[in-house]
């Protein structure tokens, strides 16, 4: 009931976008099977949304503690750079490449968590440090060059398919289930929500709020690293300058559309995934409709403003009496 209430507007918005496409874009809902793999706009939306979805899952936890992580884009760039270097400069097996680049991402998350949790630095400032310096680190690693690689096993992450669906979609699904189990079948979810809702009271009830914060930033960075690998394999290269640029904004937006309040407390993974899907569906729709590219951001912004306003109770109270007056 509560969940539905939170998810109502993003679901309606997504349904409207899909309806629009159903009417105006022929073949939008077509799904074809080629070489045992599904193709179509719907599949493409989910596949394209995967990096934002993964990050938004981590961001959901960070925001639930009342924090924010601006450094996810830079961590993506770092993860991509580390993987590209290992693939081109060393003989490490693919599994090790993945593990090392994810471990590096995780450690950067621990760094964020230490600044926020242990030293009490405001999250926006603490993660801004890594947002700026992280991209610098990635550029240092790649010498400012785009490092290309060619490794079909590694590229499976972003380009492979499993049971007909892009592997990225499976990654999102798997992460979603794993995180849901991790937070809802243990006390982690309760501690995160309690910390975000009233940190002082949680500490007085014995919750180790510092560890809770470390944990969420570490998870968020880890998932950013994974998203970084997807993006890198997608273009078969590490692009330290552009990988993950501004993705933190899409991720934060997805979380907010999904019903998790920026002030912390209750969180909704499904909502964040829905939010990320909505953002990508809009982008894809705009592109397939042949709207001039320069309009993309404006149209996206308008739809998102509409969703956010409809979620605002104050706005609804403000607008509803007028509606009624008009209809009477």
């Amino acid at each position: 009931m509560n969940t539905w209430h939170k998810l109502k507007w993003p679901i309606i918005a997504l349904a409207l976008v899909l309806l629009f496409n159903f009417i105006f874009s022929s073949g939008f809902f077509q799904v074809e099977i080629k070489n045992g793999r599904l193709y179509g706009s719907l599949i493409d939306i989910l596949h394209r949304a995967a990096p934002v979805m993964l990050i938004s899952l981590g961001m959901t936890l960070v925001i639930a503690t009342g924090g924010i992580d601006l450094s996810v884009g830079s961590v993506m760039a770092i993860a991509g750079a580390v993987a590209a270097l290992l693939l081109t400069k060393t003989e490490q097996p693919v599994a090790m490449v993945i593990i090392i680049s994810l471990a590096v991402s995780f450690l950067f998350g621990v760094w964020n968590g230490t600044l926020v949790g242990l030293f009490g630095i405001t999250p926006i400032v603490a993660t801004l440090i890594l947002m700026v310096s992280g991209r610098g680190i990635a550029q240092l690693l790649t010498d400012g060059q785009i490092v290309t690689f060619d490794n079909s096993a590694f590229e499976f992450i972003g380009r492979g398919a499993l049971l007909g669906l892009p592997f990225t979609i499976w990654l999102v699904l798997f992460t979603f289930i794993l995180l849901t189990v991790f937070t809802k079948k243990t006390a982690v979810g309760l501690f995160i929500e309690a910390t975000g809702d009233n940190e002082k009271a949680s500490a007085y009830a014995g919750v180790n709020t510092n560890v809770v914060k470390m944990l969420v930033y570490a998870i968020c960075s880890l998932l950013a690293g994974l998203a970084g690998l997807i993006v890198a394999t997608d273009i078969k290269a590490a692009d330290a300058n552009n990988a993950g640029q501004w993705i933190e904004l899409d991720a934060i937006l997805a979380v907010v559309i999904g019903g998790t309040a920026l002030t912390g407390g209750r969180f909704f993974f499904a909502g964040s995934l829905l939010g990320a899907t909505l953002i990508q569906a809009l982008t894809t729709t705009i592109l397939t409709r042949g709207v001039p590219v320069q309009w993309t951001l404006v149209v996206k912004a308008l739809v998102i403003i509409a969703v956010c306003l409809l979620q605002s109770e104050t706005f609804r109270r403000f607008i509803l009496p007028r509606w009624k007056k008009v209809t009477v």
Partner: peptide, 8 residues
């Protein structure tokens, strides 16, 4: 401020 977790 020190005891209840208001929205839970």
């Amino acid at each position: 401020t020190e005891a209840i977790i208001p929205n839970l």
